[in-house]
């Protein structure tokens, strides 16, 4: 299991904040892949990038499909969805967000552990997993203290705090996952059945608050599959294509022997 604290913090509402998203060397386009998840309960928003409306009436608990954004810097701002377009004070904003070519990231609007809204960019690991495996990433974006993530009743990611993530590579399949308060058996979210498809990255977000309720959000990124290393298909040699069949070898040898005998007769008859 790997565990990373997202070091890419951004100051909410501050201007001139530089946000650097990690790059994935596998992608060499002039675009970046960016998804946006809304995890602030009860607060529909309009999302603006560089003063242009990117998402209209973005509902809590919903996720954009991956956006191919031209690499560059973006000023992001979230306004309450019921306000006149682009007017008033933004609920959340981050200026100068750097989106480098080839990056794959999810920007999450969510609550911090204390319940204040914030924007957190997560870099998505889309590297290949072995054949038969799936990657599952869990991200704590809820207004809650540290939690343990359990799969099938076993703790797989202990002590996860907002806004940390944990990543595991597991055999593909369906798992029953739940979230408990760290070190306890007190279930905060779930259990929910999660389909971890082979060769995909399934990202599970714990979001919400005590008042609004906690929930899970799921993002799936495909394309991390690997091929099997081979196809082992026989053990007996019954259809061996190794060379000339035995009867043919015998026939050839017989011909050679016949020629030898005839040659000897030829040489003796000459004497």
């Amino acid at each position: 299991m790997t565990r990373t604290r997202t070091a890419l913090g951004i100051a909410v509402g501050a201007t001139g904040t530089l946000l650097a998203l990690g790059t994935s060397p596998a992608l060499a386009a002039d675009t970046a892949t960016v998804s946006v998840l809304h995890g602030v309960p009860d607060t529909p928003v309009d999302v603006y990038a560089n003063g242009e409306r990117l998402i209209d009436d973005f509902q809590p608990g919903t996720l954009t499909d991956p956006l191919q954004l031209p690499a560059g810097t973006y000023d992001l701002a979230l306004f309450p969805a019921d306000a006149a377009d682009g007017s008033g004070n933004p609920l959340l904003s981050a200026d100068g967000v750097s989106v480098p070519a080839g990056a794959n990231a999810t920007v999450v609007a969510h609550l911090d552990a204390g319940g204040a809204p914030k924007l957190t960019p997560f870099v998505n690991d889309t590297s290949a997993v072995p054949a038969g495996q799936a990657r599952v990433v869990v991200r704590h974006t809820a207004a809650a203290p540290a939690v343990d993530i359990r799969a099938g009743g076993q703790v797989v990611a202990p002590g996860l705090a907002n806004p940390d993530e944990a990543s595991l590579t597991v055999p593909a399949g369906t798992v029953s996952a739940d979230v408990v308060l760290a070190g306890t058996g007190t279930v905060a979210i779930g259990p929910a059945d999660l389909t971890l498809a082979e060769g995909t990255t399934t990202i599970v977000y714990a979001w919400g608050s005590q008042d609004a309720g906690f929930d899970l959000a799921v993002q799936t990124i495909s394309g991390s599959h690997s091929s099997p290393s081979g196809v082992p298909g026989g053990t007996a040699g019954l259809v061996d294509d190794g060379g000339v069949p035995m009867p043919l070898v015998a026939l050839s040898l017989a011909g050679l022997a016949g020629a030898g005998i005839a040659a000897r007769r030829l040489s003796t008859s000459r004497v």
Binding site: L63, A192, L216
Partner: peptide, 11 residues
Amino acid sequence: LPPVTVRDAAP
């Protein structure tokens, strides 16, 4: 900016 499609993120 590209057009955006949005989906429910519930499991």
